[in-house]
Structure formats: structure tokens, C-alpha cells
Amino acid sequence: MHTPAATDVRQHILDVAHPLMLRKGFTAVGLAEVLAAAKVPKGSFYHYFGSKEAFGEAMLEAYFADNHARTDALLDGPGTAAQRLLAYFRDWLDSQTGDAAQSRCLAVKLGAEVCDLSESMRAALKRGTDGVVERLARCIDAGSADGSVPAAPDARTTAVALYQSWLGASLLAKIARDRTPLDTAMAGTRQLLGLTQHDS
């Protein structure tokens, strides 16, 4: 159990590391760089994290905790389920095309890199992405119930297809340095859910 002060320092290290990982990836960022940016001594790091791998797992867990809270706020907000789903994907599109490095998707940045390096980090990614899919599936189910999502016979399959589409689009947008793949994903999302341009 961490004391409040210890929890603050631990979270500070994770917060400082996040933009470094988004820019350079997990392997390219050394612990010395993280510790220098966080202004904490090396001994402190090992007080909070047993290894760089444990640190990576904690960073992914913290990322998905924030991601899930943001997802919940969007998918549990006002409006029909279709409106909430579109708001979620608009937020995703905006976060991938903005200037702030903090807004970028850590699952896209680290997914392929760390899954072959660390089983614990792969498992953290799996738990996190499963959590997103579950939330999308619940909202799609709600859309079937309220009549706002006419074309989703199997909510989980549809949620998986959408999430895969958006993860792939985010990666392609990075490769192309262009938002077109994300716009294409949005068009595909409307088509898969049976929504027209008039749905907002």
C-alpha cells in the first residue's frame, strides 16, 4: 500500500514517462532519461517499480485507466447511443490529429513493439483493449435497444471490428502523416452502424 506521497511520486514518474514513450517508444527510452525528466534518483525508481518491464506494465495500466474514464464519460453521456458512439469516435479522430503528444494512443505506439518483449505488458494491453471493446459493445447494445443503431446484429463483433478499424487507421495516419485514414474509419463506422450523415 502506497502512502499518498509515495503514490504521488509514482504517478509523477508515470506521467513524465508517458510523452517520452509516445515520442520514442518503450525500448528507446532508458530509465536514466525517465529519471532525469522526473527529477528522481535511481533508487526511488526501484522503490516503486521492480523493473523496467514492471514500470511499462504500470504505465499501460495507468494509460488505460484514464482512457476508460474518458471513454465512459463519452459513451455514458447525453443523447442517443448512436450520438454517443459518434462523439467517442470524433474524440478519437481529434486526439490523433491534434498537436499535443499527450493525446496520442499509447496502444498504437507500443502495441507491436512490446507484445514480443514482455508477456506482462502484452497482457496489460490485452486487458486495456478488451475494456474498450466491452464499453463499445455495451453502447452498441444500447443503440439497438433505443433504435438509434439499426445495423448492429452482434454488438461485440461490431465493437471488435470498429476498434480494429480505428487502431489500424491510427497507425496508417502516423505512417502517412495524414488524417485521411481516420476520416475513412469514420465513414466506415457510420456504414457499419447503419448511420447517415444526418446522425450527429
Rank of each mutant, 00 (worst) to 15 (best):
M1E: 14
H2F: 13
A6P: 00
T7Y: 11
D8A: 14
R10Q: 14
Q11F: 00
V16G: 00
P19D: 03
L22E: 05
K24N: 08
K24Y: 05
V29K: 04
G30P: 03
E33Y: 01
V34C: 02
V34F: 02
F49A: 05
G50E: 07
S51G: 03
S51H: 04
K52N: 05
E53K: 02
F55T: 07
G56C: 09
A58I: 13
M59Q: 08
E61N: 15
A62S: 15
A65H: 13
N67H: 14
D72E: 13
D72V: 08
D72T: 13
L74F: 07
L74S: 13
T80Y: 12
A82E: 10
R84D: 06
L86I: 14
Y88A: 11
T97K: 01
T97H: 02
A101F: 00
Q102E: 14
R104F: 13
C105Q: 06
L106H: 10
A107G: 12
V108M: 09
A112T: 04
V114T: 06
R122Q: 11
A124G: 14
A124S: 14
A124W: 10
K126W: 14
K126G: 10
G128P: 02
G128D: 02
V132N: 04
V133G: 05
D141Q: 12
S144T: 12
S144A: 14
S144K: 07
A145S: 09
G147A: 11
S148Y: 07
V149Y: 07
P150E: 11
P153L: 04
D154S: 08
R156G: 00
T157D: 14
A159D: 06
A159Y: 06
A159R: 04
Y163K: 03
Y163G: 01
Q164I: 01
G168E: 04
L171D: 03
L171T: 02
A173S: 15
A185G: 09
M186P: 03
A187M: 08
G188E: 06
T189S: 13
R190I: 13
L192Q: 14
G194I: 11
D199I: 09
S200G: 10
